[in-house]
């Protein structure tokens, strides 16, 4: 493996003032697709319509098992703090879905 020059003692290295410090070039990245991969369950459509525009489903699916009240408070935080455009009428279905998914055995990802 390439040995990277590591600094000793002071951990600070003075560069040479006369050298151009750095040449900046344009940068870009192509991020991978994000398949909306949600297990079947009651309220799945409400989750797809209200949650996954902002983030991958994994954010929800990887959470430890918590109460219905906790899921209600998490959805509330998405609405009031993060201004997520969640339809009020859809909140019970979103919460139902999360409680259902968390009652199932871990699906092997």
């Amino acid at each position: 493996m390439k040995r990277i020059a590591i600094l000793s003692a002071l951990a600070l290295l003075a560069g040479c003032d006369n050298d151009p410090a750095v040449v900046f070039e344009d940068a870009g990245i192509i991020l991978p697709d994000d398949p909306i991969d949600l297990p079947e369950g009651p309220g799945r459509d409400a989750v797809i319509e209200n949650c996954t525009a902002c983030h991958s489903p994994s954010t929800m699916l990887q959470q430890p098992k918590v109460s219905r009240e906790k899921w209600e408070s998490i959805v509330g935080k998405m609405k009031t703090l993060y201004k997520a455009p969640v339809d009020d009428a859809a909140v019970p279905a979103i919460v139902d879905y999360m409680v259902h998914v968390q009652s199932q055995p871990e699906p092997g990802v």
Binding site: L31, P32, D33, H55, L61, P64, E106
Partner: peptide
Amino acid sequence: GLPGGPSLRHVNPPFPGKGAMIVQRIRPP
């Protein structure tokens, strides 16, 4: 090994410039 789970994570999809990372979330990464 997260106590009580869910504990399993994919190491894909690959991200440009990254090795086999544990993908906790694709978007935002």
